[in-house]
C-alpha cells in the first residue's frame, strides 16, 4: 500500500479524492442542485449497493476461475457451465428439502465433484496444451448446456431465500428528506447484504488460507514454479485436484447465489463465463485480490451503467477491459 503511494503519488491522490467524494455522496443529504443534475439519491445508492453485491457474486465465480488458471494454467471455459449446474442443483435441493442453506453444501459437493472429474479426465490428459484445453472445454460446455436444457427445461427458476432473509431491511443511509423534515432511510434486501458479507468473509478466508497456511504456501509455490515444487516432493497432483474441486465448488455456490439474486436459466452460463473472463482480465490472472477488485469494478460499472446510460451498460464493462488492456496488459493486480 505504502509502496504504491510512494510510486504513484498522483494516482493515490486521485483515488483518495474519489473515495472522499464517494463517502460524501453516500452519507450526505444531497442538495437540490445535485439531485437536478444526476437524479435521486435513492437511485444512486441502490445502484451503488447493487453494484457492490453483484461484484460479490462475480467475485465468487471469478475467484475459482482465477485460482485454477493461476495454479494449473488450465483454461476452463466450462466454468460458466459449472455455475449454471450449481444453480440448477441448488434450486432443486432447496425446492425438494425446503432448506435454502442446505443448497450450499450440496451444490458445493456435487459441482466440486464435477470439477474433479474435469481435472482427472480432461485436463490431466492435456497438460500444457492451451488451445486443446480451450477447445475441449468449449465442446464440453456446448454439450452440457444442451443436456441441461434437455433435463431442466428452458424455464427461468428463482431460488427463494428463507423467510428470515427475505424482505427489505432499513439501513442507516439517508435516501431523502421529507417536506416535514423527517429523514427517510434507504431500505435494502436483507439477503443481498448477507450474501455480500458472506462473499467478503469467504474472500478474506481464502486470502488467509493462501497466505498463512501450509497448503496455501504450496499453492503459491505452485503458481510461481510448478516444476520446482514437484521436485521438492510435494504431492502436486493432489493439490491440483483439491484446488480444482474448490474452484468448481465455488462456481456452483455462486450459481445458488445467482439464482437467489436473479434467476437460473439457459444462457446464464455464457453470461457468467464472460463476466469472469472480463473480471480476471481486468484484475489480473491468478490473483485473488485482483479478482476482488475486478469484480467490484465490473459489478459497479454494470449497475451504474444500467442506471445512468441504459443503452450502453454492457459496453461500459468491455470499455473498462479495453482500457486496462491497453495500459496494463497484465491486469490491475497482475504480475508479469
Amino acid at each position: 500500500m505504502r509502496g504504491f503511494a510512494n510510486a504513484h503519488p498522483v494516482w493515490t491522490g486521485m483515488l483518495a479524492v474519489l473515495a472522499v467524494v464517494l463517502l460524501w455522496l453516500m452519507f450526505a443529504i444531497w442538495p437540490p442542485g445535485l439531485v437536478d443534475v444526476i437524479g435521486n439519491k435513492k437511485v444512486f445508492l441502490s445502484a451503488l449497493f447493487n453494484g457492490i453485491t453483484l461484484g460479490g457474486l462475480y467475485f465468487l465465480v471469478a475467484s475459482g476461475f482465477t485460482l485454477i488458471f493461476g495454479l494449473m494454467r488450465n483454461v476452463n471455459l466450462a466454468h460458466g457451465t459449472l455455475y449454471l449446474l450449481g444453480g440448477y442443483v441448488g434450486f432443486h435441493t432447496a425446492d425438494k428439502t425446503g432448506y435454502w442453506l442446505l443448497a450450499f453444501p450440496v451444490t458445493f459437493i456435487v459441482v466440486g465433484f464435477c470439477g474433479v472429474l474435469l481435472q482427472v479426465l480432461v485436463f490431466r490428459r492435456m497438460e500444457g496444451e492451451d488451445l486443446r484445453q480451450t477447445l475441449v472445454t468449449i465442446g464440453i460446455s456446448i454439450v452440457v448446456a444442451d443436456l441441461m436444457l434437455w433435463g431442466f427445461g428452458g424455464d427461468f427458476f428463482n431460488i427463494s431465500p428463507p423467510p428470515w432473509l427475505s424482505g427489505p431491511v432499513e439501513t442507516f443511509f439517508v435516501s431523502s428528506v421529507k417536506r416535514s423534515g423527517e429523514l427517510v432511510y434507504l431500505k435494502y434486501p436483507m439477503v443481498r447484504i448477507v450474501i455480500f458479507i458472506a462473499a467478503v468473509i469467504l474472500g478474506i478466508a481464502m486470502w488467509l488460507a493462501l497466505n498463512k497456511t501450509r497448503i496455501g504456501m504450496m499453492i503459491r509455490a505452485g503458481v510461481d514454479d510448478r516444476d520446482m515444487l514437484q521436485a521438492t516432493g510435494a504431492r502436486i497432483q493432489i493439490v491440483f485436484v483439491g484446488v480444482f474441486a474448490f474452484g468448481a465448488g465455488l462456481a456452483g455456490i455462486a450459481g445458488v447465489v445467482g439464482g437467489t439474486f436473479q434467476s437460473v436459466a439457459p444462457g446464464e452460463d455464457t453470461r457468467f463465463l464472460l463476466a469472469s473472463l472480463v473480471v480476471v482480465i481486468v484484475g489480473g490472472m491468478g490473483s485473488i485480490p485482483g479478482a476482488a477488485l475486478g469484480a467490484l469494478l465490473i459489478g459497479l460499472a454494470e449497475q451504474f451503467g444500467s442506471v445512468y446510460f441504459p443503452t450502453y451498460a454492457v459496453v461500459l464493462t468491455f470499455l473498462i477491459m479495453v482500457v486496462v488492456l491497453a495500459f496494463r496488459p497484465q491486469g490491475l493486480m497482475g504480475t508479469d
Binding site: V75, L131, M285, T311, V314, V315, F318
Partner: peptide, 21 residues
Amino acid sequence: IYTIMITLAIAAAFFYFTRQN
C-alpha cells in the same frame, strides 16, 4: 490463451453493442 479470451470478450462486446444500439 489470453488472446482467445480477449477476442471472445471483444466479440461479445460487439454483439451487445449491436443489440443495444
